[in-house]
Amino acid sequence: MKNLNFSSVKKLEIIISGEHQAYATDLLDNAGVTGYTIINNLSGKGSHGFHEGHLMFNEDDVLIMIIAAVPEEIVTPILEGLDPFYSEHSGVVFVSDIQVTRAVKFRG
């Protein structure tokens, strides 16, 4: 069995309304994030009330989550960058510690 090297990186989970997907991915691109995954059609509850999950006729009204694994040094800049957005919009960002085996994929 090959030897797997584990490295520590940070995981960002950005929960945001679907209509802002382009903005969020653009921000991550600009921050130098190499890749991300997007999960669609979420439902959930926030300070604005419960959010229905089913896909509308209109694709903008759904919640999505963007997951990205990033090196530690860009976590703060990204959060700093998202701050003006979240002052006006609903959603959250979760930061957690994770480990990955192919670190090179995640370092820009």
């Binding site: 653009d26 921000l27 921050a31 800049p77 700093e80 960058g81 701050d83 957005f85």
Partner: peptide
């Protein structure tokens, strides 16, 4: 980087 991203937002 953070300031730049902040301005973008």
């Amino acid at each position: 980087v953070g300031q730049r991203l902040s301005i973008r937002s």
